[in-house]
């Protein structure tokens, strides 16, 4: 299986990975259009984080290529925004300092970066907290700061690995709506990994279901629910249909092979 490199903002072309001789990710091909929102679900350990590590350039795949806008970026960093399940905020930097982290680690923080951080924080409800240290924020706020840090890194493609996994369900839902707002505002291309099937469907235009380790993409479920989405979207027939289909795929191997809600660090 191979994807056409000319189509799509992000193209994953026949990527496979093994740690030493242990296969972690089966041959995977995927093409994501500019401005698309794609969710990935799959059993724990099937290689979702491994896939993200490859796309972000942290890992060189055993086989295959990663292309962004047609350019081969396999094994090179700095091309995508990447947000891990842990918020990874730096405790000694304020909200503003954390948002401008990308600049601080590369060219140095300028007034423009700071102004942008303040604007992001204002626009997304953290304006008053701009000078707070992370320990003084709630879990949801911390995740929002982490996402703003990813936004302020200015990459069109963003990989989000279970960003809301550690939040309670109410906070989680408001964060999902918030993420959709941000996405609608800024038109980034988002690939979103989650163990929560509802979350995957609610956010995405299509959901990719991966098979158990070494995972590969077992199915693509399109989600034709109109945007903007709201609480009502969760009860539409389309939502229920997609959910039934995905759960069927996840549990196809019988109990024990798939644990859809278990959150594990990569």
């Amino acid at each position: 299986m191979s994807a056409d490199p000319s189509e799509g903002k992000l193209v994953i072309d026949g990527v496979r990975h093994a740690f030493d001789s242990t296969p972690a990710l089966g041959t995977t091909s995927l093409s994501v259009r500019d401005g698309e929102f794609v969710s990935i679900v799959g059993p724990s350990g099937c290689g979702k984080s491994t896939l993200f590590n490859i796309v972000s350039g942290l890992l060189v795949p055993t086989e295959g290529r990663v292309l962004i806008e047609g350019r081969d970026v396999t094994g090179s960093t700095g091309h995508v925004g990447y947000m891990l399940q842990k918020d990874l905020l730096v405790p000694w930097r304020t909200v503003e300092g954390n948002i401008v982290m990308g600049a601080a680690l590369t060219k140095g923080v300028g007034d423009a970066d700071r102004a942008e951080a303040r604007e992001l924080a204002d626009r997304y409800g953290l304006g008053e907290f701009i000078d707070h240290f992370p320990h003084a924020l709630s879990g949801g706020m911390r995740q929002r700061v982490a996402l703003m840090r990813t936004l302020a890194f200015h990459r069109d493609v963003m990989l989000l690995d279970e960003p809301f996994g550690a939040l309670d369900s109410q906070t989680r839902f408001s964060m999902q709506q918030w993420l959709l707002d941000v996405w609608a505002d800024l038109g980034r291309t988002i690939v979103f990994v989650t163990h929560d099937v509802d979350e995957a469907i609610f956010l995405a235009g299509r959901v990719l279901v991966m098979s158990p380790r070494p995972g590969r993409i077992a199915a693509t479920i399109p989600v034709a629910i109109a945007r903007p989405r709201s609480l009502e979207s969760l009860t539409t027939p389309e939502f229920v249909r997609a959910k039934r289909e995905i759960l069927g795929l996840l549990y196809a191997g019988g109990p024990g092979t798939a644990r859809p809600r278990e959150a594990t660090a990569p």
Binding site: S56, T77, G78, Y82, V90, T106
Partner: peptide
């Protein structure tokens, strides 16, 4: 320092000296 934080710095193409001053030193 959390390995994942250092990975994040790598993803952001952080320069060695700046990563040291901003992440490891504090």
């Amino acid at each position: 320092v959390d390995r994942d934080l250092l990975n994040l710095a790598r993803v952001m193409d952080g320069r060695a000296l700046r990563v040291f001053l901003n992440i490891r030193l504090p």
